[in-house]
Design a protein around this nucleic acid. Structure first.
Length: 267
DNA sequence: ATCGGTACCTGCACGC
DNA sequence: TGCGTGCAGGTACCGA
């Protein structure tokens, strides 16, 4: 579900929680806590104030202050994680934050996401690459040259850029006219620029559309995104290319499905 | 030091 | 109806 545009949409939908206090918290002992102790986490954040909510790539950082000292609640939605403002709890609800006004739930059926509390700014977030919508073209182009790997695999690498995932990597490569198997370090001429511009355009449009609701993605208010209606290659295997009518193909790159037009996208 | 393959979970669509 | 298979927006970790 969640790549940069979806995580951005969720982050915006919980932004109104800034200023609220955590009256109580309940965490369930699941894989999502990554070994953290649920009761200790709950006790540690109880009474704290939500000072800010910010996205870093696909991570959401909720900064907390007051009580036992400031810290960060780090949230990653994995593949199926959802943050929800209220609503019923279910068998995949892993956390319940009761606020002085409202409730915030974390739900995640596949448990690939995580919830962690850190006293300091977390290393796993600090080591991410730059934001795709903030990086300068010169730095982007220089980084491309340093990586001897397939461009599709590189776009998925969060230390190269933070926030792109399988949908937006495929959509970006289509718009740039670059084959997913092209070697990153060998992109020449106008191609790095076209890729850079495609990343900016795709992410900006997707955020404006509230992200892509492929199966059941919704923001914290339960609203669906509609960028899936604008996908040109992702999960369109066999359907005609919207530019040249050639059937879209699918292949595996770095063990991930990659959808592309064999005519419009060159290696 | 980098890179690709595998593992981790649950649910769903599909063919038999 | 039920079962097996393959697939799904994610990252961490391993060995080469």
């Amino acid at each position: 579900m969640p790549e940069l545009p979806e995580v951005e949409t969720v982050t915006r939908s919980i932004a109104p929680l800034v200023g609220r206090h955590i009256v109580s918290a309940e965490f369930r002992a699941t894989r999502v806590l990554r070994g953290g102790d649920p009761d200790r986490m709950a006790a540690r954040i109880q009474g704290l104030r939500i000072a800010g909510v910010k996205r870093y790539g696909k991570f959401i950082l909720m900064s907390l202050d007051g009580g036992g000292g400031p810290g960060y609640l780090v949230i990653h939605l994995g593949m199926t994680g959802r943050l929800l403002l209220g609503g019923p709890t279910g068998k995949h609800t892993h956390a319940i934050l009761t606020l002085d006004r409202g409730v915030l739930l974390y739900d995640d059926s596949r448990q690939f996401g995580c919830l962690e509390f850190h006293e300091e700014f977390p290393q796993r977030v600090a080591k991410l690459g730059p934001e795709p919508l903030e990086v300068r073209f010169e730095d982007f182009a220089a980084a491309l040259k340093r990586h001897k790997t397939r461009i599709k695999a590189l776009l998925l690498n969060q230390t190269f850029l933070r926030g792109l995932g399988n949908i937006y990597a495929d959509e970006t490569l289509f718009r740039a006219g670059i084959h997913p198997l092209a070697m990153a370090s060998r992109l020449r001429g106008e191609r790095p620029r076209r890729l850079f511009d495609a990343i900016g355009a795709v992410l900006t449009e997707a955020i404006a559309a509230g992200g892509s609701s492929i199966s059941d993605y919704v923001d914290a208010e339960g609203r669906k995104g509609f960028f899936q209606l604008s996908h040109r290659v992702y999960q369109r295997t066999g359907e005609p290319c919207l530019t040249c009518r050639t059937p879209i193909r699918r292949l595996l790159v770095a063990q991930r499905s990659s959808h592309f037009c064999p005519k419009c996208q060159k290696r």
